[in-house]
């Protein structure tokens, strides 16, 4: 790796790295606060490496949620990642191993940082170094938080809200980006119906219902456009 790649990667990550470290620390605290051993924090962050999903996984796993519900939740929460590859500059990375890591570590942050500049200005090593630095911040923060939580018995009830706040922020971002109110309102309706009908399987029912409604709506709007043409 050339020194210039390291310097560029450090600059790329400077804006998000500290935030990932702080959020990672609260993830580590959540892990031990949920009654798990501290080393689960780095295990989750190295193997899964999907920030917001990891918070959810810990909560769901501790509540004994069945694997089917966990699989569907992962599919839908990380479903957005299936669209990231459409514009991520993976072709700038030459080595095979490098490309594999590039895909494994294709997080929201990596996508946001490396699809913004023109692909020709990015070298493979710079992208990979940036991704590795971000994962280091996340894993490092998580480990520090988990060790602090188990070592000093640090327990802050208010910190549980960090997790809710993260999803409130993501929901707000996505709603603004979607530029329409019907979808979000349908989602609220699905969530409330599922909560009433099947409180034990709320996530599965609500998400399934919401995807079904989106598919039906797509079908109708496609049929309408075909009729107009």
């Amino acid at each position: 790796m050339r020194q210039v790649d390291l310097r560029d990667a450090l600059r790329d990550v400077a804006a998000v790295g500290p935030g990932m470290g702080v959020l990672g620390t609260s993830f580590g605290l959540l892990v031990v606060g949920s009654g798990l051993d501290w080393w689960w924090a780095p295990v989750f962050s190295v193997v899964v490496f999907a920030g917001s999903l990891e918070f959810l996984l810990v909560a769901l796993a501790v509540a004994g949620t069945p694997l089917a519900a966990i699989a569907l939740t992962t599919l839908l929460v990380n479903g957005r990642h299936a669209f990231y590859g459409l514009s991520f500059p993976l072709h700038r990375i030459r080595s095979r191993t490098g490309r594999v890591y590039g895909v494994l570590a294709l997080t929201d942050e990596a996508y946001a940082i490396y699809t913004a500049p023109p692909a020709t200005s990015l070298s493979g090593p710079r992208i990979l170094t940036g991704q590795a630095l971000m994962q280091a911040c996340w894993v490092g923060g998580g480990t520090v938080g988990a060790l602090a939580g188990s070592g000093f018995g640090l327990h802050l009830p208010a910190l549980e809200f960090v997790f809710t706040a993260l999803f409130v922020v993501l929901a707000t971002e996505a709603t603004v980006a979607g530029r329409e109110a019907t979808g979000p309102l349908l989602a609220v309706a699905c969530a409330l119906v599922a909560q009433l009908v099947a409180p034990g399987e709320m996530l599965l029912v609500a998400m399934g219902l919401f995807v079904a409604l989106l598919l039906v709506r797509h079908r109708f709007s496609a049929a309408r456009e075909a009729a107009r043409a």
Binding site: A174, T175, A187, C190, L203, M207, F210, L214
Partner: peptide, 8 residues
């Protein structure tokens, strides 16, 4: 999809 899933 993203907004709805996050809201749920």
């Amino acid at each position: 999809l993203p907004a709805g899933i996050m809201i749920i």
